[in-house]
Write a protein that binds this DNA or RNA. Structure first.
Lengths: 135, 135
DNA sequence: TTAAATAAGACTTAAATGGTCGGACATAAC
DNA sequence: GTTATGTCCGACCATTTAAGTCTTATTTAA
């Protein structure tokens, strides 16, 4: 409960690794997996997600690998999370099949789900923290 | 991911209900369940957990029910969460089987799991928010 | 042409969550 | 002292989500 997923964790690790290894050669998924001793396939997939969302750039082929697409201080943690997490929806109204007609949204949610406000705060926290801050 | 569990949500609802219905009679688990249209059995169990952790006081028997044990401004959200959530351990070192011998804890965790710091912040947020604030 | 890399989707397994059931105990009211 | 109405508590089941694996295709430097 309220725990960050491995996906997010690995995504942070990978981007942190890329941020601190910006040499001539591009770090590969395998290199990252080995370094942190985490499953290769999983990291690979996560990097693909990050690539799709323009957080990293991927290079295919023999000398391939990954590099960050922006500077670490320009990458918000929420970008990384959203790239990796399929159903990331903290702030959404949680009513399902509820009577939303007489629901002035925020107020309604506040009554039925007192946590929305808190989740919004967490959301903001991720938004306001950059990758650089956790290097 | 990072979503609050139903247990926590129901616990908040229940305590909020108790906070706003402190009349002569004690609200029952059934009353709360009906009011919010949430599963009775589940709310009952959650209230039991809250009772065990001295957040609410339970009264058995015919005229039984529950009431808050403290004022809403004296109850921290983290108390409620901890009472209800079995494995709530955000700040704990996440290493398992890792080499903890040369691990000066905080630093080691920071390297291997950059999220510890963030999770700590979330922790603090819950600690500093009282039940009264979400009424 | 080959070796080393990413891309991608299907699949399997494991764990957590949400919810249910049944029986025991407590007590106010009759 | 019996009954109705409540809490207490542990075991259980079902579903969903998360985590990890497998396989095949594609790209590209040497």
């Amino acid at each position: 409960m309220l725990k960050l997923s491995k996906k997010a964790e690995y995504a942070f690790m990978a981007t942190i690794y890329l941020a601190s290894h910006s040499g001539n050669e591009y770090p590969t998924a395998k290199e990252i997996a080995d370094n942190y001793k985490i499953p290769f396939q999983l990291v690979a997939k996560i990097l693909q997600n990050l690539a799709k969302n323009n957080i990293v750039i991927s290079f295919q082929g023999v000398k391939g690998g990954y590099k960050l697409n922006k500077n670490p201080d320009e990458i918000s943690l929420i970008d990384i999370i959203k790239a990796v997490e399929t159903n990331y929806k903290l702030t959404e109204c949680m009513l399902e099949g509820g009577d939303t007609s007489n629901c002035t949204l925020v107020d309604c949610c506040k009554i039925r789900d007192p946590l929305v406000e808190i989740q919004r705060k967490i959301d903001i926290m991720f938004q306001e923290t950059s990758l650089k801050q956790i290097l």
